[in-house]
């Protein structure tokens, strides 16, 4: 087939309209969410004292951090799905969860504490946190990558890593309602390690599947 013939064929297909990447991403995440929710409710579930916990601002702050991560990573993912852009100018959005977390740590430092710092940092659930967040992330990560395949990222590994952040943010939001460790120090340590793990998996997978 010579190039003129190919061009004619492409022009004939002009009527075909692909869905925007954001729409594809949303559909794929909605399809994946039930799997993660099922994992959450069968294995973990919401902590029993949730009504009391909600009065603790540090419990609520966990959701501010994880949702800020998920939302900023969704925005950056959609931005990166365009071939001509880079992280520059948009990457700062990812600092939002870091900023909230830093402020929360500062806030906690200024308050009188019953438990020593190391106890709060190490917590009681670090191992659960390190396994549950990545495991619940995996279906969401698969969904995010499927949705983002509609895009054309210039650096697939970076786009995959951001997809990892996105899914870790969503999974961590679920996990936060189970976990009884509310100290921002615990979040900064263990949630971060779990998130970095998912981002690494996302980068490896993205390098393969997000190439166009």
């Amino acid at each position: 087939m010579d190039t003129d013939q190919l061009i004619r064929t492409l022009a004939a297909d002009n009527a075909h309209r692909a869905r925007p990447v954001g729409f594809a991403l949303m559909l794929a995440l909605l399809a994946a969410a039930p799997v993660s929710l099922l994992m959450f409710f069968t294995e973990l579930g919401v902590r029993p004292d949730v009504m009391v916990a909600m009065r603790n601002p540090f419990f609520d702050l966990k959701f501010a951090v994880t949702l800020a991560l998920a939302i900023s990573a969704i925005a950056v993912s959609l931005h990166l799905s365009r071939p001509e852009v880079s992280l520059r100018g948009f990457g700062w959005l990812l600092l939002a969860p870091v900023g909230i977390l830093t402020a929360a740590i500062g806030g906690e430092m200024m308050m009188p504490q019953r438990m020593p710092m190391m106890t709060r940092l190490v917590g009681k659930n670090s191992w659960v946190c390190l396994t549950a967040i990545p495991l619940m992330s995996l279906p969401l990560l698969a969904g995010a990558l499927i949705g983002l395949r509609h895009g054309a990222p210039s650096r697939p590994a970076v786009a995959g890593a951001i997809a990892g952040l996105l899914s870790a943010g969503l999974a961590a939001t679920l996990y936060a309602s189970h976990c009884t460790d509310d100290s921002p120090l615990f979040v900064a340590a263990w949630y971060t390690i779990a998130t970095a793990l998912v981002a690494a998996i996302g980068a490896l997978a993205g390098a393969k599947v997000l190439k166009y």
Partner: peptide
């Protein structure tokens, strides 16, 4: 020419990622 055709196919299938205001 193989590369040209490869590019044209990608342009075609990814054109929804072009922002019409850019």
């Amino acid at each position: 020419e193989d590369i040209v055709q490869d590019i044209l196919l990608a342009v075609h299938l990814k054109r929804h990622t072009w922002d019409v205001t850019a």
